[in-house]
Design a protein around this nucleic acid. Structure first.
Lengths: 147, 147
DNA sequence: CCAATATAGATGCAACTGCATCTACAAGAG
DNA sequence: CTCTTGTAGATGCAGTTGCATCTATATTGG
């Protein structure tokens, strides 16, 4: 058995904790403001980035690290809420193209200030810009799927 | 509105991604080995640390950062699986004390090698000991509840 | 002692997630 | 063309989570 060194365990533990603390904080702020969950924000942003060309669900799920059925259902809910528009694509009879509606853009814009304010407060109270940059460097290195 | 600086956003985004990547990896390894989810491991470990004295659910939920109802139900499931033992405590008629059963200890021990091996592989392939230590330092700083 | 308030824990219900499987179309092999 | 295999997406069912509320006991203030 491969025994991890203490730094590894400490890093992982603190990663999980930091993630949960900030996430709870952000989710709480969004809910209090009567806005959708953070997972919706990520999806809205990614779809918005795709612009008028739209994006295919299978592509979206890779970017959001969601399982296929999770993506399918998230789009269901967002479509029902009128935030996205799904239409069949003719090159591929199996697939569809997702685009943001105006309401989707509005909701994303409404979420951003709340999200940003909480994030700023949570991070910048504790870390300097340099520290945040260093953290980013290390985390990106950590998460490289292909080593 | 408080506008976050780019380092803040980058750090947060990479934190979420790294968390998800490693978590998926670990959960997959545990499931493949026919073992319980990681959240059970954390609870088992914390309860085991409490030893013969046991621990109160309200205390446990603080350590695990779980909501009260989440804790209640997790203990339900673990008790049903025979991993923990709940008994009423006489100083406080509302409360209970949770202890690990022998089976609980066995299961935690069975989980550890799988958990450890995956963690080691995922972290130590990408980060040196010093980098892991630095990551830990930054994340701990980030998650301090009280500034 | 009694009333008001606080704390420990459980629970009904709705929403969400995971898993397995299903349908529909696409692509390649013969 | 037709068969096999692959890919996009949906869905039934069971398990989990979130929210609000409930019960029971404890504590505090009069």
């Amino acid at each position: 058995m491969t025994k991890p060194n203490p730094q590894t365990i400490a890093a992982w533990t603190s990663l999980v904790t930091a993630n949960r603390v900030l996430l709870d904080d952000i989710e709480y702020a969004l809910k209090t403001a009567g806005l959708p969950k953070l997972s919706w924000y990520d999806a809205l942003l990614e779809i918005e980035k795709a612009g008028a060309a739209g994006i295919r669900p299978f592509d979206l799920k890779e970017r959001l690290l969601l399982p296929q059925y999770g993506m399918s259902r998230l789009l269901d809910r967002m479509a029902k809420a009128g935030l996205v528009d799904r239409q069949d694509v003719e090159d591929d009879g199996r697939g569809q193209i997702v685009r943001l509606t105006q309401k989707g853009r509005d909701v994303r814009q409404a979420m951003w200030p709340v999200y940003a304010a909480t994030l700023t407060r949570s991070v910048e109270r504790h870390l300097s810009q340099d520290e945040a940059a260093e953290l980013h460097r290390l985390l990106k290195k950590l998460a490289r799927t292909k080593s």
